[in-house]
């Protein structure tokens, strides 16, 4: 039984280990390890295409994380007071946002936005005052990426924060109200400290998701390139040690963020949210 578990863990982690190991390979070939070197990382840092893609990915991921955790937390708080038919409808939409595969989200966003832009651009052109110079043209790019990523991650934040709210001690809020604290003060002094770990975990998960997403970006990035899209097209041109270096950096980034998120959600000394417990 234990031997089997060890084999499965090897199956899960050896491929990751190979990428990390070969990113430090002095040689070019994948067949043998020819000594330790960080030259592929140097190559990567001086590759303008990879650096552009990285910058785009960082901008998209951090904006997505901010928007998703802000709006998602607001919605989770607002949903506390919604019951009955509206609540069922809202829950269904959240479920759909999480369950519909990324590829369908990508396609749907692509054709909806392009259609809207095709209508809107002539209108903007007609209405734009000459004095302001050339009229702006709506196009796929960083904006559409952020909008599409925020959709899925916001649904995720709602689910995470809501499970924390459900596990929260109601008595404290009632006590605060009994002591004549205004609702805003109760929120900042009682509710917020209790849900904050969940909000932060939601923020980190949103960042990770957006940073790692390939399929949605593949459809809605327009002329922009994110890091995963860059990696995918590099792989099509052939496997190089540089991809291993990117892979190692990407995996390290998400591993660190995930471990922090995991600690925030289930760590010592914090209340375990009901329904989200994994222990």
């Amino acid at each position: 039984m234990r031997a089997y578990a060890i084999v499965v863990y090897l199956f899960l982690y050896v491929p990751i280990g190979i990428i990390v190991l070969f990113s430090f390979n002095a040689g070019r070939h994948a067949s043998s390890f020819q000594g330790f070197s960080v030259k592929w990382y140097g190559k990567l840092l001086s590759n303008p295409f990879a650096m552009d893609a990285l910058t785009t990915s960082l901008i998209v991921a951090s904006t997505t994380a901010v928007l998703a955790s802000l709006f998602g937390t607001m919605a989770a708080l607002g949903l506390q007071g919604v019951h009955g038919r509206w609540r069922a409808l809202y829950d269904a939409v959240i479920y759909i946002a999480i369950m519909v595969p990324g590829i369908v989200i990508g396609i749907a966003t692509l054709i909806a936005l392009v259609t809207v832009f095709n209508f809107a651009n002539p209108v903007i052109l007609a209405l734009w005052p000459q004095a302001f110079g050339a009229a702006p043209k709506l196009n796929l790019g960083v904006g559409s990426l952020i909008a599409a990523h925020t959709l899925f991650t916001m649904a995720l934040v709602i689910v995470i924060v809501r499970s924390r709210l459900a596990g929260m001690d109601r008595a404290l809020i009632e006590a605060s109200a009994d002591l004549y604290a205004p609702p805003v003060r109760t929120f900042w002094q009682i509710t917020m400290p209790q849900i904050f770990p969940a909000v932060l975990a939601g923020f980190l998960l949103s960042f990770t998701f957006s940073f790692d997403d390939f399929i949605i970006a593949f459809f809605v990035a327009g002329a922009e390139t994110t890091l995963p899209v860059y990696v995918f097209s590099s792989i099509r041109r052939g496997v190089t040690p540089e991809i291993n270096a990117i892979g190692t950096l990407v995996l390290t980034t998400s591993l660190v963020l995930l471990i922090v998120a995991q600690f925030l959600l289930h760590g010592r000394g914090t209340r375990r949210p009901r329904g989200a417990s994994n222990d």
């Binding site: 990428i19 390939f214 892979g247 995996l251 995930l258 994994n278």
Partner: peptide, 21 residues
């Protein structure tokens, strides 16, 4: 348990790439 879940949240692109290798 965390060690099982964590890979799921890291880049599927990079992890699949490892298998090309």
């Amino acid at each position: 348990l965390v060690m099982v879940i964590v890979p799921f949240w890291t880049s599927i692109l990079i992890r699949t790439y490892a298998w090309i290798f």
